[in-house]
Design a protein around this nucleic acid. Structure first.
Lengths: 124, 124
DNA sequence: CAACTGTATTAACCGTCTTAGTACAGTTAG
DNA sequence: CTAACTGTACTAAGACGGTTAATACAGTTG
């Protein structure tokens, strides 16, 4: 479900954040779904609870989850559009598309990928 | 031309790499164009020459530039398709698209962005 | 020869990531 | 109520990577 790569230069807490965000975005973690507890996920990944805590704290700050002392952490329905995050994602999207086309990947293939996601999103 | 952000958590040499790669990809730096020397760019950005050297070394390893002792560093025409880089870029592209659509950005807008790039690429 | 180019190497500093250990308050099942 | 869970906070220590500084050497060029 969630995996981390110790060889990766990226911090573990970032990898955990991205994994969880991807699970939420993909629908694998619907709103109000309970996440593993800080200690449980730490034990599962064999890393320190502090590292998980940091990932959860930042995900909550980004509006993807909500943590309640004593109860747990839960996936959260996206409320207000996160304009700042959208701006960053669009920049990432454009950069990747620009370089891919420079490297010879046809624009049609990129558009087809979008269309495929659109279909998958509607079937769910 | 090339700018770095000291507040950014990303390493300076990565920022330099991305700036140069973007200049090459966008066509601002055509093949065989001479890049600033290691020391010159370091002085311009007020950072250590070693940091520039590292950026150049890795860009050469990625096939974006070529460095010749005594002469300088030059933008390089993309020869063989860099399959590894393309794979990573497609993953980045997909992740951004997935989350953008999750956040409510319509697929049509993403496709329109691709089409726009396609048009710009053809006019050049 | 002089001034440039890339390249290599060593040492030192500093910030961040991660771990370990402990502690406290809220929640919940028995 | 108690026990076991939950999130949260804090300090200390170690490890690692990024960056700088200071040289040094070889190839190129006017």
């Amino acid at each position: 479900m969630i995996s981390i790569n110790f060889r990766d230069s990226r911090p573990i807490y970032e990898q955990v954040k991205d994994s969880l965000r991807r699970l939420i975005v993909s629908g694998a973690l619907p709103a109000d779904e309970k996440l593993p507890s800080v200690r449980e996920l730490a034990a599962q990944l064999v890393i320190n609870p502090n590292t998980i805590q940091r990932a959860y704290r930042e995900l909550e700050h980004e509006g993807y989850i909500v943590s309640v002392p004593g109860k747990g952490s839960f996936a959260m329905a996206q409320s207000g559009a996160n304009t700042e995050r959208i701006r960053a994602l669009l920049a990432q999207f454009d950069d990747a598309a620009d370089e891919l086309m420079y490297l010879g990947v046809p624009a049609g293939e990129l558009r087809a990928r979008i269309a495929e996601k659109e279909a998958k999103g509607n079937e769910a």
